[in-house]
Design a binder for these strands. Structure first.
Ligand code: ZN
Ligand code: ZN
Ligand code: ZN
Ligand code: ZN
Ligand code: ZN
Length: 621
DNA sequence: AACACGTTCGCCCTCTGCTGGAAACCT
DNA sequence: AAGGTTTCCAGCAGAGGGCGAACGTGTT
């Protein structure tokens, strides 16, 4: 029996029985997901009635076929005669396996047991003193005083679908349902949003749209953290983040997902499916955002996250955070210089100091302040300025600017192969000719099920594991970064400028980030960011969070939308976080209407229409 | 019957942030 | 030249937004 340990889902709660089994072969076939076919189903509710599932959103419908088939068979045998149900007291001695006997497993019925065997006509006295009949459904606990309502209600227990679609083979219980359905065939969308150009097939869709996009009314609120949402299903999904409930188990590994979307996405690591392809280099990705991030590597203008303490510029927020923690956080022990007896509080200042000890070097670069001990080193360095990569790996074709790097590549990547250094005539402009994406492709050749499959690494005894969350890592460096990223949000950052002996004139403080701005930034974008920041309360500034918003946004050249007042949608996520749109579990207020309005003030032009009014959905009788 | 509207199931998308590992850089 | 460190990038999971469609029920 394979003992599978998951490094990622330690708190996974499995609700799928089959997932408890260690033998994949023994999995209940009805709950096994088809590995290669994540079938595309028609949207909307399926034609057949089905049992309730434990969750309401992102339902995984694999494995329900059986149930549905059973239902159908039984339905054939037990058609309800609605007319008789209503007009007479009915005595149907239905067997316990009747299709109507779905109460016990269905959420809907768990609270009270419906009256089964008859339609009860209770005498009750109405306000007017007139005796009214209280009619009860014999299949559920529905009651009404109106006969026609009960009659209509009984349709919900029936399988009769007299209204057939002329365009497909579906049929419906009511004409309204049919009409709506036919409209989907015809593209008729009678419900037009009065705030925008969208229109919808049903009124419900319009109402929901208006709440999402225009009134921002969110009727469903999490009592635990204040998160609010338009749809109940979204609240239910959200609550799983508190409970840790993960009902959807991967049949191929120990991963468990809280919803079907993540499971479906996860399954790609087993199927090897890569639906997102780069149009420039043809490399494929499993997730859309991986492609999006990749496209930046083809782009000349990349988002930049400049460090506020030194001239370094990172391409990613998390890298900047790591950089700051590594380079600028005060060490527990001062770092001594090994050439003199000075010591320094952080790595960066030590390194800068180290440069002052540099002796005379003969070979210095004319383009920058680099200097080398040998002419060959300088020659390799110059390749960087020229953009040439003369050193090619004979094994995989990867090209390098410096022979040392190729050598390192060979020892790292082709340990056992007989790779050799090939020196190519210098080629110009070959910036990172086949890094990453292209060069990674060979890793998957012949691996039917992708990289993750072989894993379940026999956790080396000498692995590095986090003392806080127990997670294992393959190197000290990765553990280090993990600790910074996950467990140490705050650092004691050493800012050299704070310790200069001379009095510092505010204006003299050099903000490296500003250099970046001056050089690269489109003023429109800056203004946009500034606007948002202006909307913040003083207190909202988190010192540690410094400047984590990218200074160059990933916006196509000549984007016409730039002149517009940014909408919530166009606020970068980093900024959203700063102004509190994104959930903060410790800040209930961020969801209050007051707060919401603050957001509107800085990102939206508030107007009267913001307030939900009675006619907001535009139904005019 | 038509309307209004809440509910439910389902699909897909984006944004975010951490991780693994290789290239690039530095000493 | 070699080895260590930093940066870069793909991989991938968490969380939430938005919509399509059907169903059910009270009201008109
Ligand atoms: Zn149809
Ligand atoms: Zn919550
Ligand atoms: Zn899996
Ligand atoms: Zn590409
Ligand atoms: Zn140079």
């Amino acid at each position: 029996m394979a003992t599978r340990t998951s490094t990622r889902s330690t708190k996974a709660v499995k609700f799928v029985d089959s997932a408890e089994s260690d033998e994949d072969e023994d999995l209940d076939k009805s709950s096994v997901l088809p590995i290669n076919s994540v079938s595309k189903k028609p949207r909307g509710r399926p034609p057949k009635s089905r049992r309730s599932q434990p969750n309401d959103d992102e339902e995984w419908d694999g494995g329900n076929e059986q149930i549905d088939e059973e239902d159908d068979e039984i339905h054939e045998d037990h058609k309800i005669d609605i007319e008789r149900d209503v007009t007479k007291t009915m005595h149907m001695n239905r067997s316990t396996d009747s299709v109507y006997d779905f109460g016990e497993t269905s959420r809907k019925w768990t609270k009270s047991t419906p009256q089964r065997n008859n339609i009860v006509s209770k005498a009750s006295v109405s306000d007017s003193g007139k005796t009214m009949e209280k009619l009860m459904c014999s299949y559920c606990n529905y009651t009404t005083t109106k006969k026609y309502l009960l009659q209509r209600h009984l349709k919900s227990h029936s399988t009769e679908r007299p209204h057939k679609c002329a365009y497909c083979d579906r049929s419906f219980k009511t004409t309204i349902q049919l009409t709506n359905h036919v409209n989907t065939h015809l593209g008729v969308k009678p419900f037009q949003c009065k705030f925008c150009a969208f229109s919808f097939t049903t009124s419900g869709e319009l109402i929901r749209h208006v709440r999402y996009k225009h009134t921002l009314e969110k009727p469903h609120r999490c009592e635990e953290c204040g998160y609010a949402t338009v749809e109940l299903s979204k609240l239910r999904r959200h609550i799983r983040t508190h409970t840790g409930e993960k009902p959807y188990a991967c049949p191929h590994c120990s991963y468990c997902s809280p919803d079907t979307f993540k499971l479906k996405r996860h399954l790609r690591v087993h199927t090897g499916e890569r639906p997102y392809q780069c149009t420039i280099c043809n490399f494929r990705f499993t997730q859309s955002n991986s492609l999006k991030a990749h496209m930046l590597t083809h782009q000349a203008e990349k988002p930049s996250f400049p460090c506020s303490y030194c001239p370094s510029v990172m391409a990613r927020k998390s890298d900047l955070r790591y950089h700051v923690s590594k380079q600028h956080s005060r060490q527990s022990e001062p770092l001594p210089c090994n050439k003199c007896d000075e010591d320094f509080p952080d790595k960066y200042t030590l390194r800068m100091h180290g440069k002052t000890h540099k002796g005379q070097t003969i070979h210095s670069c004319t383009n920058c302040e680099f200097s080398a001990n040998t002419s060959q080193q300088l020659e390799d360095h110059m390749n960087k300025h020229r953009g040439t990569r003369p050193f090619q790996c004979s094994e995989c074709g990867l090209m390098f600017a410096a022979r040392a790097d190729l050598r390192a590549h060979i020892t790292r990547t082709h340990k056992n192969a007989s790779a050799a250094i090939v020196t190519n005539p210098p080629t110009i402009g070959n910036r990172r000719p086949q890094r990453r994406a292209a060069s990674l492709q060979h890793r998957y050749i012949g691996m039917s099920s992708g990289p993750e499959d072989e894993e379940q690494q026999h956790e080396e005894e000498d692995g590095y594991h986090c003392s806080i969350c127990q997670r294992q890592f393959t190197s000290a460096r990765l553990l280090d970064r993990h600790t910074f990223a996950v467990h140490e949000q705050k650092h004691d950052v050493y800012d050299e400028r704070d310790y200069q002996t001379n009095e510092i004139n505010e204006d003299d403080v050099h903000d490296y980030a500003d250099d970046e701005l001056e050089e690269k930034i489109n003023h429109k974008i800056i203004n946009k960011n500034e606007n948002i920041v202006e909307g913040m309360e003083e207190d909202d500034y988190d010192e540690e969070e410094e400047d984590l918003a990218p200074h160059v946004e990933d916006i196509a050249e000549g984007d016409e939308d730039m002149e517009q007042i940014p909408t919530i949608k166009s606020v970068s996520s980093a900024n959203k976080k700063q102004i509190g749109i994104i959930r903060k579990s410790d800040d209930q207020e961020s969801f209050s209407d007051k707060r919401k309005f603050n957001i509107n003030r800085t990102t939206f032009i508030p107007n009267e229409d913001e307030k939900p009014d009675l006619d907001v959905f535009g139904f005019d009788g």
